[in-house]
Design a protein around this nucleic acid. Structure first.
Lengths: 339, 339
DNA sequence: CTCTGGCACTCCGGTCTCCAGAGTGCCAAT
DNA sequence: ATTGGCACTCTGGAGACCGGAGTGCCAGAG
């Protein structure tokens, strides 16, 4: 049904349309890509591709543009990831070197990604649930008030205030500190409940009620509803493709302001080792049906820390974007692993 | 030169143009606002106002629209701040109650402001330099590595890793902790250098070199280049006024992504107790010359914590925006003061 | 069966003209 | 100082027009 030449035609359509943003006709196409066949033949192929739903007409007498399905086929079977240029490679290095703390790394990554791809960039903070505890500090703010400060191996610092049922003196706080410290140090967050399970029994009688309430907060913060954070940038790039978002810019911007949506976007990645592409309607987020999303997991190993990616028009240079997202993900992953 | 009626005409023009977004002509104006004079008279007044630079023509035969100067006069002398509606008042309460930590407060405030005003909202985190130390925790991450965690009275938590010249044991860290703790507790950040000045001499000989390097980091983090943070939201509202930003949306979005720019925007407030309005060209930020900015300081007293505000088209409902910004600033200030 | 050239047809987008409507500026009269 | 009148200007939308690009289909050649 779809012989090689038809696929070749599809590829040519996608490439031309992506670069010119204009519906591409049979004649121009036959000339620019030397397919060795006449425009008439191309027309026949186009008709076939249209029957299969890979391309459409805006109007009876306009050229063809790819549909979401067309892009999908293109991405899956007709394109190869574009390797980065030397300049791009250097850009990644210079952008990310010298980052001070995790916040800084994330901010720089957002900026890097958006400038590199000329799209909107989204970077998730290393997920709490996949991190390990480096340190848990308990600060005695007031007799009946503690501040928990958690530091993870990825450099994330999370804090939380605990209101106590009773009051504590400094000795008791020290007891708490060592009780938690011993059990949590180095524990992956998923293992925290297990690590703490024997705590109530092992602790000295006097601090048990307090300990229980602290434990509740710890578990809640770290395990039950760990706070996921996301940074975003480069929204100005959406206006570049104002033509692509006729009046759809609104919902896109709105969606991008919802943390929940962004997390969903990035979190749906099941296999963290590869780059994922969601094209137009494939997207589960209502407001982003007119866009494509390219995401990747980043982290030191398969148990990825988190995800990052870009959001842009479906008319996107996929081979390039995929290459760029992958490269940045790898680089940031290594960076965090090394730190 | 500008008698009362002329001012009245200007006010009418501003109000009409703000609500309809269409140049307003003499006839319509004379009818809608019962000025008791004929369109011809209004025309004469308009000509005078135009001579003075308060209004312009888009074309020879279109109605008038206010200039930046016109808005300025309107804001300064012709308008009174619009009090909040009950619904708005309630919205502020429900939005902000139940905020967990400072991050949460800021995020909610951004959302609140942008929804209330239907503009882009900008909220600065409580400025470090104007805060006081509630607690400085020193965490012993590794023999030659410390983590400083600073907690301010506004709830901000700042962390910083220090690489030491030598190694330390736990006792020495405890010494450090108490040395800094005693001197810093409750100190305003501006007073930190003074509070620490006698530290090198007072400290035990053994930890002096380390102490010096820790001190350097503390001073740098808190005093020399305190990190100012800003949150932003509601950029989708810019598209609502797409008519106001014909193709200028780009630079606006770009400017709004620059932390530096945002800080400048908010930081230029000299008198924190009132609401400030920058209109169009008055704006010092290049990309925001087509917008107006309404800001206010917020905090428990005149020594304000920080600033917040909204960015929108010059064609903005100033009386309303000013009222809303002021109300939110007050509410958030009280909230933080009480916490 | 596939490819090709030819041809009639469609439709978009730009340009032009036209016209009504809104608004102005000026002037003479009150 | 204000007003009514009037001629003038300019916009913006509606319609008409047309060239160009592109399609679909068909019949013929390989």
């Amino acid at each position: 049904m779809l012989d090689d030449r038809k696929l070749e035609v599809l590829r040519a359509i996608v490439e031309d349309f992506v670069s010119t943003n204009e519906p591409v006709g049979s004649k121009a196409l036959a000339e620019r890509h030397n397919l060795g066949v006449s425009p008439a033949t191309v027309r026949n192929d186009m008709a076939a591709l249209e029957d299969e739903g890979f391309i459409t007409h805006p109007h009876t007498s306009a050229g063809r543009i790819p549909t979401d399905r067309g892009y999908r086929l293109f991405v899956d079977r007709l394109s190869t990831v574009k390797p980065l240029s030397g300049a791009e490679r250097r850009a990644i290095q210079t952008f990310l070197e010298g980052a001070a703390d995790l916040d800084d790394v994330v901010r720089r990554t957002v900026r890097l990604l958006s400038q590199l791809t000329q799209q909107v960039a989204v970077v998730q903070y290393p997920s709490l649930s996949r991190s390990a505890v480096r340190h848990l500090e308990i600060v005695h703010l007031a007799p009946n008030r503690l501040l928990l400060v958690l530091i993870t191996d990825t450099g994330r610092v999370e804090q939380r205030v605990v209101e106590l049922p009773g009051t504590l003196d400094d000795d008791q706080v020290a007891q708490l500190r060592s009780a938690f410290g011993q059990r949590l140090h180095g524990a992956r967050l998923v293992d925290v409940p297990a690590a703490l399970s024997d705590l109530p029994d092992a602790a000295p009688q006097g601090i048990r009620p307090v300990l229980t309430s602290v434990m509740a907060v710890v578990l809640e913060t770290l395990v039950e509803k760990p706070e996921e954070r996301v940074a975003i940038g480069g929204t100005a790039n959406l206006t570049r493709s104002a033509l692509d978002f006729p009046r759809t810019l609104r919902p896109v911007l709105e969606s991008l302001e919802e943390q929940v949506v962004l997390l969903k976007l990035i979190g749906e990645v099941n296999d963290p080792t590869t780059v994922h592409v969601k094209i137009g309607e494939e997207n589960s987020v209502e407001g982003l049906r007119s866009t494509s999303v390219v995401t990747a997991g980043y982290g030191p190993d398969a148990a990825a820390y988190a995800g990052l990616g870009v959001v842009g028009p479906t008319r996107m240079d996929y081979p390039q974007a995929i290459g760029q997202v992958r490269a940045v993900a790898r680089y940031v992953g290594d960076l965090l692993a090394g730190a």
